[in-house]
Amino acid sequence: METETNNSGDLKPQPNTHSTFTASEISLRITAAATSLTAACLMFNSRQSKVLYGTPLDARYTYTPALKFFTVMNVVVCALSVLSLLSVFMLVRKFSSSVNYFYLFLHDLLIMVLLAGGIGAATTVAQVGKYGNSYAGWMPICDNFGKFCHKVAPSLILGYLCLFCYLVLAIISANKARQMKV
């Protein structure tokens, strides 16, 4: 990264590189907000009712705590992504100190951990729903509730895409906090 030294000897990023980082950061935050919102909407609409062996059965995300956590986590991540986008716009107006970028890094890291927990739990439940567990006697449900499973799978894929966006954002924020001088 190109840097220049001001009168006090502090290193400041050149505006061209700063604008590139800022543009990528803004686009990643918008992508993360959009993917988490879409994942939540898919989960909100993932339900299917069916009559099996004369018994009416439902498959809904609210019946599994892991899928509920995943859905709520996506709504929270979307809201926090929009809030962090506003803070990035405030940081763009002036070259801020590294402390502000460090707080942004902590924010990104916290969201990344939250996403990883929600996606891990939901993926585990989805795997059991698709394949069952013969050792525990759990039967797969995706054979009977295909519509439900076909909405959960893309939601998980979008969750992983959001997690990747926040991984890159955490790296960018850490890099900016390390390069900036107070």
Rank of each mutant, 00 (worst) to 15 (best):
S19T: 08
Q14A: 07
P13R: 00
F69N: 09
M73K: 01
H107R: 06
I30L: 14
L67H: 03
T35Q: 14
A33R: 07
N16A: 12
I119P: 00
F105C: 05
L28E: 05
S46I: 08
L57D: 03
M73W: 01
T17N: 09
D58M: 08
M73G: 05
V51P: 01
G117M: 15
A23L: 09
P15A: 05
A23F: 08
F69W: 04
A79N: 09
K12A: 03
F89A: 05
M43C: 14
V82C: 13
S36I: 04
N16L: 10
Y101W: 13
L85I: 02
L106P: 01
S96Y: 07
L83W: 00
V51G: 00
V75T: 11
E25L: 02
V76E: 15
L52T: 08
L67Q: 03
S19W: 10
T123R: 11
V77H: 02
T31R: 13
T35M: 09
F95T: 11
I119T: 12
L110H: 04
N74Y: 10
Y61P: 03
K50D: 07
G117N: 14
L110C: 13
A39K: 01
L52A: 06
A34L: 12
F95R: 08
F95V: 11
A23D: 13
V99W: 10
N45R: 08
K50H: 13
V113I: 14
M90T: 09
V113Q: 11
S36F: 05
G120I: 05
G117C: 13
Q48T: 04
Y103G: 01
L114R: 04
V99F: 14
L52Q: 07
L80E: 10
M112H: 06
A32G: 15
L115N: 03
S36A: 13
F105T: 02
Y63H: 10
T31M: 13
S49H: 11
P56A: 15
Y53G: 01
Y63F: 12
T55I: 15
Q48A: 04
L106H: 00
M43I: 09
T62D: 09
V51K: 12
T64Y: 07
R29E: 01
M73Y: 01
L85R: 04
V113A: 15
L28N: 10
F21R: 03
N100D: 09
A40K: 03
S36R: 00
G54V: 07
S87A: 11
M112A: 13
Y101D: 00
Y61H: 11
H18Y: 07
K94A: 04
Y63N: 10
S36L: 05
S96P: 00
